[in-house]
Write a protein that binds this DNA or RNA. Structure first.
Length: 425
RNA sequence: GCGGUUGUGGUGAAGUUGGUUAACACACUGGAUUGUGGCUCCAGCAUUCGCGAGUUCGAGUCUCGUCAAUCGCCCCA
């Protein structure tokens, strides 16, 4: 026996208990999305590279972290590294902006791909759930969407969480702040680390995230976004916070929270476990994007959305004892002994047609082995048939709980099983 | 992209300064019980130690390479 192949780095197989847990999580998400009026959208796993590689993104991500390839027709395609862009593309392509009821509320759930160095909870093929509400700009929408993420986390049994929230303001506020930051940090250039030099050029807001320079004196006095919000932005943010208060969602205003993307406006937020200080801890992240739809050619529409990494959510939920795999029990196990041909399968098929899940042995094990297999399968009823029973067209039906066993004609098997299983419920 | 740790059967693992028949436990299969499980007892179950090369009379044990997992940094749309 040798391992001729192994899964590609950063991928994993999902089976046994694990896949049951995933399915449970997916069902829970779909159910809650439905409560909030979100509808599912499924977009292609790959898109034209330009869909993801807009001017808005730092070139690092685009060059190094995307799975891009040319197809046989010479088109440059990319495995989706995130959910939002594909949804916006679809929204514009199918002219959903013409819908009488905006915002259009969509959710997605599926694999994404990033060429990252794998770590615990971080894979190259990972799974993300996310929502996008496109076509409205209202604090109510922000609050409702945050509440949706909150409810899903709670439903998964994740309890000690809080919302980190900030406002980047509208375009005007943002540009003013960006300029203020650049002006402020430029004189300190010598004191900044290598990475910050790059950040200052590419995305000044990101400098605030720096872990190397964070504790230096001049960092404490760096301008705060809150001081650069214009009146409409300030009022908008206040409404969002009031909404969260009214819904009893705990939050913390974090002026340095900027998220990695340039397209965010006004509200940005992350949901984090409170007792976990590491920055790997973010389980949900999102915010408002004004201008993204327009950059896809879809008109001046505002959107709000978030994304959630399922791997991390599930890990966290399990740590907090939230998710238990529930293995569906098998109803009937048919034990066939001796030279009985397909007698066992015939009985099994009758029961399956009647709606019972039936298992049987294919390896000609002895009776002891088959009984053990039935036990492992959690079978509630065991049917034993051998050469004598085949002769008489009968079978022994045994209740595994009471251990009572009766011999009945083939035609009465279904009725007998029905009686035993019915009694149990 | 950088650094640390790890890699033995289906699973958990032991393996002393390199010497060989690769412990032990669980699981699994068969038998004791010629057709009735969960207890007990007996037997079987890794031509081989992630993969490849090297050092050596001899390597699971040392060296190098490689693949993978994991932790930290970077990044995290």
């Amino acid at each position: 026996m040798e391992n001729r192949y192994q899964m590609p780095r950063g991928t994993f197989d999902l089976f046994d208990e694990e896949v049951l847990i995933w399915r449970q999580v997916e069902q829970l998400i779909r159910r809650i999305c439905q409560l909030y009026g979100y509808e599912e959208i499924r977009t292609p796993i790959f898109e034209a590279t330009e869909v993801f590689a807009g001017e808005n993104d730092s070139s690092d991500m685009v060059n190094k972290e995307m799975y891009s390839f040319n197809d046989n027709g010479g088109r440059s395609l990319t495995l989706r590294p995130e959910g939002t862009k594909g949804i916006i593309r679809a929204f514009v392509e199918h002219k959903m902006f013409g819908s009488p009821d905006l915002p259009r509320k969509l959710y997605y759930l599926g694999p994404m791909f990033r060429y990252d160095r794998p770590q615990k909870g971080r894979y190259r093929q990972f799974h993300q759930f996310g929502v996008e509400a496109i076509g409205a700009r209202d604090p109510l929408l922000d609050v409702e969407t945050i509440a949706l993420g909150w409810q899903i986390a709670k439903a998964m049994g994740i309890n000690n969480i809080t919302v980190m929230i900030n406002s980047l303001g509208d375009k005007e506020s943002r540009d003013a702040y960006r300029k203020a930051l650049t002006d402020y940090f430029t004189p300190h250039l010598d004191e900044l680390c290598e990475d910050c030099h790059r950040r200052l050029r590419q995305n000044p807001l990101r400098v605030l995230d720096c872990k190397v320079d964070r504790d230096k004196d001049f960092f404490r006095d760096a301008p705060s976004i809150q001081d650069y919000l214009n009146e409409p932005s300030r009022a908008y943010f206040a409404s969002v916070l009031k909404g969260l208060d009214d819904l009893g969602i705990s939050y913390q205003v974090e002026p340095h929270l900027v998220r990695g993307l340039d397209y965010y406006t006004n509200t940005v937020f992350e949901v984090v476990p409170v007792d976990d200080a590491g920055q790997q801890a973010t389980i949900i992240g999102g915010g408002q994007y004004d201008g993204l739809v327009e950059s896809f050619g879809g008109g001046d529409l505002c959107g709000f959305g978030f994304g959630m990494g399922l791997e991390r959510m599930i890990t966290l939920a399990k740590e907090q004892g939230g998710l238990q795999a529930i293995k569906p029990a098998n109803d009937v196990y048919v034990i066939a002994i001796g030279e009985v041909g397909d007698y066992g399968l015939t009985i099994a098929q009758q029961l399956r047609s009647a709606g019972y899940s039936v298992a049987l042995d294919y390896t000609h094990r002895g009776m002891k082995g088959q009984f053990k297999a039935a036990e492992r399968a959690g079978s509630k009823v065991i049917i034993i048939a051998g050469e004598d029973e085949l002769q008489q067209q009968k079978a022994n039906v045994k209740d595994t709980e009471t251990k009572e066993q009766i011999t009945v004609p083939v035609s009465e098997i279904i009725g007998t099983v029905e009686k035993i299983l019915g009694k149990r419920k």
